[in-house]
C-alpha cells in the first residue's frame, strides 16, 4: 500500500469527508451510549432537543458557542502560522482576571474588553519570544502556563481580588453592572458577546484573506524557510500572530465575565481553551468555519447535559464525541489530499 498526493480533489470528497468524519464520531459515541444501557436513538433525540428544542435551549447553545468561537479563532490563527498555542485556557483566564482587576478603574465595556485581550496577548507573546530567542518549544511552555495562570487566578480570588460578600466562596469582586454586556434576548443568558464573536470571526477572515499580514502568517506556517527567502519578516509576523491569537483567547475570557458571570472563579471555563483546539481543527482552521464548528461543539455539550440527566448517561460523552470528531476529521482531511495507490 502506498499513499500518493491527489492531482485532482473531487468536490464531492471535499464536502463529504468532513461529514463522514462527524458521522463516524457520532456512530462511535452511539456505541458508547449503548454500553451504558440507554436507548441510542432516544439519546440522540434528547441531545438535539436539549440543544435546539426550545427558545431557551437555542439561546443556551449560542451562549455556550460564544467563547468557543473566540478560542477556536485563537487556535486557528496560531496553527495556520504553525505557532502551537495550546495555552488558550490560560489566556482565557488571564483575560477574565484582567477584567475583574480593572473593573472599577475602567467601568465601561470597551475598555475592559480591550484590557482582557491585551492581557491574553502578553501571555502568548512571552512564550513566542522564548521560542524565537532561545529556541524553546512553545507547546510545552504554553501548556505549563495554563497551570500557572489557573493557580494565579486562585491566588487572586482568595487574596487581593476576593469578594468579601461572597460568603467565603472563592470568587473575585464583581464587575460594575454598568460595564456588563447587555442581553441580546431578555430573560435568557444570551448577550451581545455573540455579536462581537461573530463580528471578530468575520474580521479575522478578512485579515487572513485581504491583508499582507494574513498572507505572511500563512506563508510562515506553510514553509518558514521559503517565506524568509521571499522576504517575509518571520519574527515580526509570528509576534503579530501571537498578539492576535492570545488577544482572541483573552477577549473570550473578558466576554465570558462581562456577558455571563459578572465575576471570576476557577469554574469560569469548563475547558474553553482546550475545546477551542477541537473547534479550530473541525473548521480546518477557516475563520468562517469556526463559527459553525463552535455551534456544533456547543450543541453537543448543551444537548448532552440535558440528555445525561434524563437517561443517566455520563455527560462526558460530549467530550468523547468532540475529541473523536477531531481525530476523525484529521484523517478525513488527509484523504481529501491523498489517495491509496496500488
Amino acid at each position: 500500500m502506498r499513499l500518493e498526493r491527489r492531482v485532482h480533489r473531487p468536490a464531492l470528497l471535499t464536502l463529504g469527508a468532513p461529514l463522514l468524519a462527524l458521522a463516524f464520531a457520532l456512530a462511535v459515541a452511539g456505541g458508547l451510549i449503548a454500553l451504558s444501557g440507554a436507548p441510542v436513538i432516544e439519546a440522540y433525540k434528547r441531545i438535539a432537543i436539549g440543544a435546539f428544542g426550545s427558545r431557551l435551549a437555542i439561546t443556551e447553545t449560542l451562549t455556550r458557542a460564544t467563547p468557543l468561537i473566540l478560542t477556536g479563532l485563537a487556535a486557528a490563527v496560531a496553527f495556520r502560522a504553525r505557532v502551537w498555542n495550546i495555552g488558550a485556557e490560560g489566556q482565557f483566564y488571564i483575560g477574565a482576571l484582567a477584567v475583574a482587576a480593572l473593573g472599577n478603574v475602567l467601568p465601561f465595556s470597551a475598555g475592559l474588553l480591550l484590557g482582557g485581550a491585551l492581557a491574553g496577548a502578553v501571555l502568548l507573546v512571552v512564550p513566542v519570544l522564548l521560542r524565537l530567542r532561545f529556541g524553546v518549544d512553545e507547546v510545552v511552555t504554553t501548556l505549563l502556563l495554563n497551570f500557572i495562570v489557573l493557580l494565579f487566578v486562585s491566588l487572586a480570588i482568595e487574596g487581593f481580588l476576593r469578594d468579601p460578600l461572597a460568603f467565603g466562596w472563592p470568587q473575585s469582586v464583581p464587575v460594575p453592572s454598568e460595564a456588563r454586556l447587555g442581553k441580546l434576548i431578555e430573560k435568557t443568558r444570551l448577550h451581545w458577546g455573540l455579536v462581537i464573536a461573530v463580528g471578530v470571526a468575520l474580521a479575522v477572515f478578512a485579515v487572513n484573506r485581504f491583508t499582507v499580514f494574513g498572507l505572511q502568517s500563512q506563508a510562515a506556517g506553510a514553509n518558514a524557510d521559503a517565506a524568509r527567502f521571499a522576504g517575509v519578516p518571520i519574527s515580526r509576523t509570528l509576534i503579530g500572530v501571537a498578539c492576535l491569537s492570545g488577544g482572541l483567547a483573552g477577549l473570550a475570557g473578558a466576554i465570558e465575565v462581562l456577558g455571563v458571570k459578572g465575576h471570576v472563579s476557577t469554574a469560569l471555563s469548563p475547558g474553553f481553551g482546550y475545546t477551542g483546539i477541537v473547534v479550530a481543527m473541525l473548521a480546518n482552521l477557516s475563520a468562517i468555519g469556526v463559527i459553525f464548528a463552535a455551534l456544533f461543539v456547543a450543541a453537543m455539550f448543551v444537548g448532552a447535559d440535558g440528555m445525561s440527566r434524563a437517561l443517566e448517561v455520563p455527560s462526558f460523552i460530549a467530550d468523547v464525541t468532540t475529541s473523536l470528531a477531531l481525530l476523525a476529521m484529521l484523517v478525513a482531511l488527509f484523504f481529501t489530499n491523498y489517495r491509496v495507490a496500488r
Binding site: 458508547l32 496553527f79 502551537w84 495550546i86 507547546v139 482546550y274 483546539i277 477541537v278 481543527m281 455520563p314 462526558f316 460523552i317 467530550d319 468523547v320 468532540t322 475529541s323 473523536l324 477531531l326 481525530l327 484529521l330
Partner: peptide
C-alpha cells in the same frame, strides 16, 4: 502536535466516561 493533543483529549474524556 494536533494528533497528540487530540489523543490526549480523547483518552482523558474516555477515561472519565
Amino acid at each position: 502536535h494536533v494528533t497528540g493533543l487530540g489523543i490526549t483529549l480523547f483518552a482523558s474524556s474516555l477515561s472519565y466516561y
